[in-house]
């Protein structure tokens, strides 16, 4: 789509490579907090997202355009509109919300079946590890049956978007994925 425009786009004069990353997950998983953390912004006053947010993040010489789309049930049907030409999917899980593990697993399974995301690398953030009731990442990976995903690269990373712990590790994995792809 828009073959003509991509040519003109080059005239904008940003030589660096731009990548599109979509950030999804249930409501209250911490997507917007993570986004703001990635952009080194204040994370103390975040309200439920009714629409979506976009931020550019510089990482390892790449420009990552990260799209964070609201996760409330009523908004989820809109997710698929944002999946086109995505380079990488980040899925965020509230590790302390055990009651909704099944629900979040279903949403993820449905997402990965979407055509636009075929072969797209997946990074799962097991968020809210700062809470004592948080389940460990390994347990969540098992619950999500991540080991059955064979047609794409995936990684699960324990983190706390609030404190920032583990977030950089996830970003390092993303960069390594993109470097591998370029080769």
């Amino acid at each position: 789509m828009l073959g003509l425009l991509s040519v003109i786009q080059k005239l904008k004069g940003s030589p660096e490579q731009e990548l599109r990353i979509v950030l999804l997950g249930l409501d209250n998983a911490g997507k917007t907090t993570l986004l703001k953390r990635l952009a080194s912004e204040e994370v103390s006053t975040i309200t439920p997202t009714q629409g979506f947010n976009i931020k550019s993040v510089q990482s390892h010489g790449l420009k990552l355009n990260v799209w964070d789309i609201g996760g409330q049930r009523s908004i989820r049907p809109y997710w698929k509109k944002y999946l086109g030409s995505t380079d990488l999917l980040i899925y965020v899980i509230d590790s302390a919300d055990q009651k909704r593990f099944e629900e979040t697993g279903q949403e993820l399974a449905e997402l990965t079946e979407d055509e636009s995301l075929t072969g797209v690398p997946l990074l799962v953030f097991a968020n809210k590890q700062d809470l004592v009731t948080a389940a460990p990442a390994a347990e969540i990976a098992e619950g999500l049956s991540l080991h059955t995903y064979r047609d794409r690269e995936w990684q699960i990373q324990a983190c706390s978007a609030l404190s920032g712990e583990g977030v950089q590790d996830g970003m390092n994995w993303i960069s390594s994925q993109i470097m591998n792809r370029k080769k």
Binding site: M1, L2, L5, Q50, G51, N53, I54, K81, Y82
Partner: peptide, 27 residues
């Protein structure tokens, strides 16, 4: 507002279609 509304996306897609059509027709 910093946060974008979902409705922006639909309008944006319409705009993309318009731009592409105008350019293509002209070419």
């Amino acid at each position: 507002e910093e946060e974008s509304k979902l409705s922006y996306t639909e309008i944006y897609q319409e705009y993309q279609a318009l731009v592409e059509r105008l350019l293509e027709d002209y070419l």
